[in-house]
């Protein structure tokens, strides 16, 4: 089963890389946004030693993972259902788990590359300092949990995407809304009305962004967070809970084909 999962992963990555437009749009878009936001808002922060562009560079990691995980997975599954990939595979002894692990490998590969690109832009263009080892440790579990949550939710949401061609439109609605209310595009998040912060706190993106800011920004920046603290424990808890919710949703909504219910 392991070899089949790896083979699926290989084929997924291969197919993704060969589809140039999707490479450019899903992959380079977050980095372009970062360049844009970072350049427009530049140094406009009161906090000493931190620029707005550095805040964007760290928060944007949440966006990068969300698009690679949620959008790639959601749209990819809808596409696989439509073009017959899933049906083909279902007629073979390939276990469903191997198919899903293959997708996870794709998402993980893309997310690692995406994160590396965003960090690179942050460091090279916006002088973002790299953190110490203990912060990288936090980065590791935060990154892992974020990828799993986004991937699971992507699988779950693909169940309600009827046609692959509408996938992008449907999936980007929650993505864009969450960016605005979760402190990715607009930070300090405390500028938002309290109720909106409460709403954002129910979803994983706010916690992902907060966590990445902890990793890359100086400790003093915690005063700009909703709770005035980094809340690492709570981040882990919320993301862990979303893993469970995502898994349950996946199992409830997964369909092999559009036609036969």
């Amino acid at each position: 089963m392991t070899s089949m999962s790896l083979a699926r992963g290989h084929v997924e990555v291969l197919q993704f890389l060969r589809d140039r437009t999707s490479v450019v749009f899903t992959f380079l878009f977050p980095a372009l946004l970062l360049l844009l936001f970072g350049t427009i808002f530049g140094d406009s922060y009161d906090q000493a030693g931190v620029s707005a562009s550095q805040v964007y560079a760290s928060s944007m990691l949440a966006y990068g993972i969300l698009t690679t995980g949620f959008v790639t997975m959601g749209a990819g599954l809808a596409m696989d259902r439509e073009d017959g990939t899933l049906k083909r595979l279902r007629g073979t002894p390939l276990p469903l788990t191997s198919y899903l692990i293959g997708k996870l490998i794709l998402v993980l590969t893309m997310a690692v590359a995406e994160a590396a690109l965003l960090i690179l832009v942050g460091v090279v263009v916006f002088d973002m300092p790299l953190p110490d080892a203990s912060h990288w440790l936090t980065f590791a579990w935060l990154f892992g949990l974020s990828v799993i949550v986004c991937t699971l939710l992507g699988v779950a949401v693909s169940g309600i995407v009827k046609h692959a061609r509408s996938a992008g439109a449907i999936l980007n609605v929650p993505v864009v809304i969450l960016q605005f209310i979760s402190g990715v595009f607009i930070h300090p998040i405390t500028q938002l009305p309290t109720w909106l912060i409460t709403v954002a706190s129910l979803f994983p993106v706010k916690w992902m962004a907060q966590g990445f800011r902890y990793v890359f920004l100086p400790d003093s920046m915690k005063s700009l967070e909703a709770a005035g603290a980094w809340e690492l424990g709570r981040i882990a808890m919320v993301l862990g809970a979303w893993c469970v919710i995502g898994l349950v949703l996946c199992l409830a909504t997964f369909r092999w084909s559009e036609k036969d219910r």
Binding site: Q15, D19, D80, D83, G84, T85, K87, R88, G91, T92
Partner: peptide
């Protein structure tokens, strides 16, 4: 499934 082979009426997967 390992004992059966299937050729579906239509498929356009794996184009790349």
């Amino acid at each position: 499934r390992s004992r059966i082979g299937i050729v579906l009426q239509d498929a356009d997967d794996a184009a790349d």
